[in-house]
């Protein structure tokens, strides 16, 4: 009985946290980046300072912790399939590729995007030149994660519903 609850609860948390994470990733990439560029180019407009000051820190807070929660719930969900998945054994290679993509994305969030955003937001001392570099690195890494999310979500779904592709 207890063992039947664990996968259900883990999957529920995995979906909730995953939607929060990837939803914010798509917000950053499909909405905010263009909005900030437009606001900065809008002479006489209100500018992007409000977004940078009030929206970005909150969005990044939910983004990075949701990323971690998604991974932990995913690892719990894999349970005994964790090692076969990550070593791409047999049919577990399908979820394994999804898990690797999600893991790489998590490492990019905590190892690249967040440290660079701390410089951009002024939470970590940086010169203007360092901030400009950090902004570009964070932007491109965020774009890489958006690209990676496309196969990642296919492989996540295909692990249980991939008959059409993988038999």
């Amino acid at each position: 009985m207890e063992n039947e609850w664990v996968p259900l609860i883990a999957r529920w948390i995995h979906f909730l946290a995953g939607i929060t994470w990837i939803g914010l990733l798509y917000y950053f990439n499909f909405v905010q980046a263009a909005a900030v560029a437009t606001a900065n180019a809008d002479q006489g407009g209100p500018g992007a300072a409000g977004i940078t000051k009030y929206v970005v820190p909150r969005a990044l807070l939910w983004f990075r912790w949701a990323a971690l929660a998604t991974w932990i719930a995913g690892a719990a969900l894999l349970g005994p399939r964790f090692m076969p998945a990550f070593t791409l054994q047999g049919s577990d290679a399908v979820i394994g590729i999804g898990a690797w993509l999600g893991t790489i994305m998590l490492l990019f969030v905590w190892g690249v995007i967040w440290p660079n955003q701390k410089k951009v937001l002024g939470l970590k001392p940086a010169t203007d030149a360092e901030k400009a570099t950090a902004r570009r690195v964070a932007f491109l890494t965020s774009r890489v994660n958006t690209a990676l999310s496309i196969p990642m979500l296919l492989f996540m779904g295909a692990s249980a519903h991939g008959v059409a592709l993988f038999g």
Binding site: N29, T146, I150, P151
Partner: peptide, 30 residues
């Protein structure tokens, strides 16, 4: 050459190409 990741369309196309590559890899593995 322009970085495809600078545009949303380029990012999505990059993701789709990567998907095709990884599906081929997965089919070879299983």
């Amino acid at each position: 050459m322009k970085n495809p990741l600078d545009s949303i369309l380029g990012t999505i196309i990059t993701g789709l190409v990567l998907t095709l590559v990884l599906v081929a890899v997965a089919k070879a593995l299983i």
